[in-house]
Structures are given as C-alpha cells and as structure tokens.
Computed example of a mutant assay.
Amino acid sequence: MIKPSTPDNESERLAALQRYAILDTPPETAFDDLVAIAGAICATPMSTVSLIDTDRQWFKGRRGIEAEQTPRDHAFCAHAILEPEKVMVVPDARDDARFSDNPLVTGNPNIRFYAGAPLVTPDGYALGTLCVLDDEPRELAPYQVRALEALSRQVSHLLELRRVSRELNHQLTERNWYEQQLKRYQQELEAQNADLTEQTRTDALTGLANRRAFNVALEQALQAGREVAVAVVDVDHFKVVNDVHGHATGDEVLRDVAGVLRATGAASGLVARYGGEEFVWLIYDRALADAALQCEYLRQAVAHATQTLAVTVSVGVAVAQDGDSAERLFARADQALYAAKRGGRNRVVASED
C-alpha cells in the first residue's frame, strides 16, 4: 500500500475545510440524496461524500458503508484530491500498487472498484470527493464519469451554500445581538438624559423646580394665553439666620420653607426656588385678589409650620396683563416684594400696575 502524499497547499486546504464547519455534523438529506443519485447513475452499491481531514477521512453522506470515518492513510479519496481537476478511477484495486494491500481492500468493505470526483471550492481547494465504490472490478462509461463530475460540482455548490447560509445566520445573530445592545444602551442613555434633564430643572437643596424650569413654564403659560400670576417669596432676615446659626441651619430653614410652599402651592401652580432665599410661585387661573389671598395663606403657613427656626416670608404678587412679557411680569412681582419689605416684612403686597 502506498500512503497518499500531502498536497502542497495542505495548510490552506485544511483551513478552507474548517471554514465550512461541516465535519462531524449530523446527516443532511441534501447530501444523502446526491450520494444516492451518484450510486444509481453509476450502478454501484456504495457511494459517499468524503471529506479529507488532517488524519482521517470523514463521510458527510454515505450509502452501503457502515463506518462514519476511516484513517486518511487508507482513504482512496486522499489520493484523488492530489489531482483536483479530474476524476480518479481505479478499475481493480487489487491491481493497483497504491491499494492492493489496503485494509479497505483486503477487509471490509472489500473495495475493488473506485471512482472519485474531487469537491473543489471556488478558490481551488480540494476538500474531498464524491465517490462511488463497488466490491467487484468494473469500468465507468463516459456518460457516468461526466455525471459524477456534474454531481460533484453540485456537492461543492451545496457546501458553499451551506457555508454562506451559516455565515449569514451568524451575521444576523450578531446583528440582532448588537441591535439589542444598542437598544439597551439607547434606553440607558435616554434614562440618563432624563435624569440630567430633571437635574437641570430641579434645585438640588430643596427638590423644588429651579429658575430654569420656572422660566420655561412661565413662557409657555404666557404663550398659551393663560391667566397667570407670579408671586415672589423671600425669607425675611435670612442673612441673620446664616450668620447666627450657620449655613447648615440656613439650609434646613430653606428646606422647611420649600416643604410648606410645596404643600400649599403645588396644587394650583408651580413652586420653584429662584435663588438664595428667594422662591417663586407661578399661580394658574387666578385673578389678582385670589392670587393675593393664596399668597396670604402661604405666608401664614410659613410662619406657623417651619420647624428648624421660626421664620417669616415677604411676598410680592402680580397678574399678567395683555402684552406682558415674562420679564415684565416678574419685574412687577419683584417690585411688589420690595414694597412688602419696605413695609415691614412678613406681609403680602399685590402689584396694581
């Protein structure tokens, strides 16, 4: 027996075989059908799709042969791939020095006749063969050789289609994974953006809306033509609180006042911390007298409900007039606040302008 030599491009050929990811896969009807057709056309009891691995011959499809694989050194197909451009025909293996004492000839399955058409990839690598075998010596007619060649091309096409399909499925799976990751990242980003947006509109100390959120809400209300009032609320003598009791206590006082403002005013408008000890209240759908009355309730609530220290507030309130801008309306409420302070603090002054 003459062992088959190794193709010059063996490492590249094996790499190509691995790309097809077909070794040791379950039987597939498409390959079994081509094996059966080849055996029928050539009138042989045995036929296979044989793939030549590093040290074995593995059958993707087989008919009339029990073994799933054989050693490469015993494989007729390992000789056939050395000349990928033609069908290798062995009329009688006992008369061929390469195979006369081959275990597959001297023992089961007692091969006498062999014909193998190489399975060649688009880039020219012979991976194995489509072969037909018999336990009796014989020859193939020219049409049978041509049919075997044609069927081997079909097996090669099937291998290629299988590879492409597998790679496409892999790409689709990866794409789906990346799309899921992208969706998750997008959701996380949206959540972070929402948090950032909330942070840019919320006062960190009191949890109330901040100046930016108030200005946006006031602009929107004026553009919509709603009847609105603006009340500016200032904690009386807050500098003294900080100087005497410290800034930590001052912060607690601001949180107390914010809590009263939230409880008193949130139902009828937007309460915000405008800066320092100054708060603002955007009151919806109230005439000036009603808005001033609401502010009076607020003033009394602060005087009685603050817990850290007993503090009072001064309030200036103004109602939007035709053609008022946000700046003009706020300025009139601010002027009313200063009038409340000049008048002795702890009071509400409504702007009549």
Rank of each mutant, 00 (worst) to 15 (best):
L196R: 08
R63E: 04
N215K: 09
H245L: 09
L282A: 02
G207R: 02
T206N: 09
E352V: 13
L189S: 12
W58C: 07
A217D: 07
E219H: 05
Y178E: 05
A117G: 07
Q18D: 15
D96V: 07
A320I: 01
A267C: 06
P118L: 02
A301G: 00
D33N: 07
A229Q: 08
T306C: 13
K341V: 07
A93E: 15
R153Y: 04
G316D: 00
W177Q: 11
A320G: 11
L293P: 01
P27F: 05
G343Y: 06
V280M: 02
G275S: 07
E83S: 13
Q220V: 02
E66T: 14
T206R: 02
R201V: 10
K60G: 15
E160V: 05
G269V: 07
Y20W: 08
Q181G: 10
V253N: 09
A310I: 05
L222S: 05
V155L: 04
R332V: 02
V311D: 04
P142K: 09
C42D: 12
A141Q: 15
I283A: 01
R94Q: 14
A75R: 13
D251N: 08
D322I: 13
R273E: 03
A291K: 02
A97M: 15
H157K: 12
L23R: 10
H170M: 12
T200S: 15
N242A: 06
N9T: 00
K183P: 00
L270D: 15
G323V: 01
A258R: 09
K86V: 00
F113L: 04
A191S: 14
